[in-house]
Design a protein around this nucleic acid. Structure first.
Lengths: 151, 151
DNA sequence: GGCTAATACTTGACTCAGTCCAGAATGCGT
DNA sequence: ACGCATTCTGGACTGAGTCAAGTATTAGCC
């Protein structure tokens, strides 16, 4: 598994370091985690890492297309390693949990806006907002009262 | 015009204050502006306002459905007064400009995810990422090099 | 295996958006 | 006009993310 990660980095022209391998593994084992959570995960596996290294590495991974950054409203950035397929996200307003959903329209026609205003559209990011099964059944936590609550 | 804003506030059970009127007007005249920009706009019209009052008022307006908050990746929250219709946004990766686009699918079938994972889905937020006409033609500013550029 | 240049990591200070709090001011119903 | 409830102000604070300078690692070469 480390073999794979190492090759992956090299294939994308990146130097292989313990930190990068660990971050790559963390993104894969904990999809939708924040930079902070990933840092914790990494510390669990290689002992320690600086915040800066985490941000730097994540930035590089996103830039090289090895990871994807999602930034839902009111939440710090989250990262996932599912790239290349056209999937979207479902976020619970109450507890902040995020799950993947496949694109309604299949491939990439999401990319078609009615009027593109002359823009060269590259990507359509879709976030579905709602309440997860757990929070739907927990009274008081789903009427917008705690709209800022998150997990 | 102030008449309208005043009535609007009252109708939604809100006290009418100079600050609220001004914020409401600012949101309407400068769609997609950040809280800070709106504060400036308001200062231009009523002299001065505290940051807190701006955030507070915007929060209230959003809560009562008089305004909508959009938070694209890497950008502070933006506000607009176009509510109730199912429109989305088109954001330029290079200069950060944001324009409205109508929903591809018309009404609200955007709300249908293939598998809702048991969530009660309320809203689908769609952001199209790309490059605006100006930035498309400006070489060097559209190849992801300055992915963080905005403003 | 050791040397060197390039790249990556660490540490700490900093910025920026947004929130919290206590006290002062204002609007609203009577 | 009065008193209460709501709102506004100013300042301190938090949390996410960035900048910059110095140190450590990696990769390529001998």
């Amino acid at each position: 598994m480390n073999e794979d990660a190492e090759r992956l980095l090299r294939r994308h022209g990146l130097q292989v370091t313990a930190q990068r391998l660990a971050v790559l593994r963390a993104v894969s084992t904990r999809p939708h985690a924040t930079a902070d959570e990933l840092a914790d995960e990494v510390r669990g596996s290689i002992g320690s890492i600086s915040r800066q290294a985490v941000y730097d590495t994540l930035g590089t991974l996103v830039e090289r297309g090895l990871a994807r950054r999602i930034q839902p409203a009111g939440s710090p950035a989250r990262y996932e390693d599912r790239v290349g397929d056209n999937h979207h996200h479902l976020v619970c307003r109450a507890c902040g949990v995020m799950v993947d959903v496949d694109c309604v329209v299949g491939e990439a026609p999401c990319l078609t806006a009615e009027d593109d205003h002359g823009f060269a559209i590259e990507e359509a990011e879709v976030i579905y907002w709602g309440y997860c099964p757990g929070c739907r059944n927990r009274p008081g936590s789903r009427n917008g009262t705690d709209r800022n609550a998150r997990g």
